[in-house]
Amino acid sequence: MKLRPMRFDLYLGRAVFGTVLLTWAVLVGLDVVMAFSGEFKDVGKGGYTLGHAAAWVLYTVPRRAYTFFPTAAVIGSLMGLGQLAATSELTALRALGLSRKRLSVSVAIALSLLTAVMVFSGEVVAPWAQSRADNIKLSAKSGGSLAASRYSGLWAREGDTFLSAGSGDELLQPGGGTRLVLRDVRLYKIGADGQLASLTYAGSAEHGDSGWVLNKVRRDTFGERSATRQTVESEPWQTQLDPAALASGLSKPRNLTAMDLRTSIEYRKRNGLDARDYEDIYWSRWFYPVNVLALCLAAVPFAFGSLRSGGMGKRLFLGILFALGFWLLQLFFGRMAGALKFDYRLAYALPPIVMLAVSGMLFRRKSG
């Protein structure tokens, strides 16, 4: 089987490219419109304006495009191949001696190019743009007293005190509600003369029903010619900082690059913290291109049979059915991995294997 690009590769690639890009634009466009309308409720909070909302939505487009690409790829592929099948062009290609496997390779080549662009965007463009979007929203709502940095964690200000947190999590309480935990916390208090009056380091800062509590505290207080150190295991922290605003400034695992996710996983394991949420997102990034190609190739057999007699509605329905079925299967294995604590690599490898196995059975049946 020859793998070098031929004229029919370009023809099939152009047909698939067109329908995938069109489907992609529709899905992302609808999501952008819904996201923008959802921001109206926050307009007017602090300094958050309609312009901030528009900027926030525009900066999140790369992340939305990355998320919707697998769905757009399978729907677009089915629509493009279905159009060729309905006009008997696939039959003509088969009459020229091209096997179904060779035609499937042509589709895979075209989708591989788009998938490579999406992998690059998901690792470089989307995290940067999402960080900018979060900064715009957080800074506008807080009047400039909060800022989130991809490299420096979370920064916040209240009066003469500046807070820096390396990371944090919003945890569910057993009886309901949430508990915010900030880690690697530093509090910088500035004196009236503009000099650093004290530096407080805390291993963690927790906000629960009774307010803020600092744990494993080390405080250095600076005088004109002296410095004193105080250490306590735990102490309450009297502050008016809003925990909900701080939580919104924390970087979510899905907005981090694979390298940052790996660093976070190692940090949490080293300190005995739960890293499953980060492992879930981390391995989903690695299996992203595999999932896209497996999902689309699993749908290819339908283009050689039933789609020939079906219309656009049938192709659209099958594409959505495939994408939804694959998403549910992946969600099921992912939740099982989290609950039973088995390797996420296995959880993300099983769905494409199952889909390709079913597709292979259908492929052989149609070939027969």
Rank of each mutant, 00 (worst) to 15 (best):
F8M: 03
F8K: 01
Y11P: 01
L12T: 07
R14K: 11
V16I: 13
G18I: 00
V20D: 05
L21D: 10
L22R: 00
W24R: 00
V28N: 02
G29E: 08
V32K: 07
V33D: 02
M34W: 12
F36R: 05
F36K: 05
D42F: 10
V43P: 13
Y48K: 01
H52S: 09
A53D: 04
V61L: 14
R63M: 12
R63N: 10
R63Y: 10
R64D: 11
A65P: 05
A65R: 02
P70H: 08
P70A: 05
T71V: 14
A72P: 00
A72V: 11
I75D: 07
S77D: 00
L78E: 01
G80A: 08
Q83T: 12
L84H: 03
A86Q: 15
S88Q: 14
T91H: 11
L93R: 04
R94C: 09
G97R: 07
G97A: 09
V105Y: 08
V105G: 03
S106D: 06
I109Q: 06
L111C: 12
L111M: 12
L111W: 06
S112V: 03
L114H: 03
V117C: 15
V119H: 09
V119L: 11
F120E: 00
G122A: 14
E123N: 09
V124A: 13
A126W: 03
D134H: 06
I136L: 12
I136R: 06
K137W: 04
L138G: 02
S139M: 12
G144M: 07
S145W: 04
L146A: 05
S149C: 01
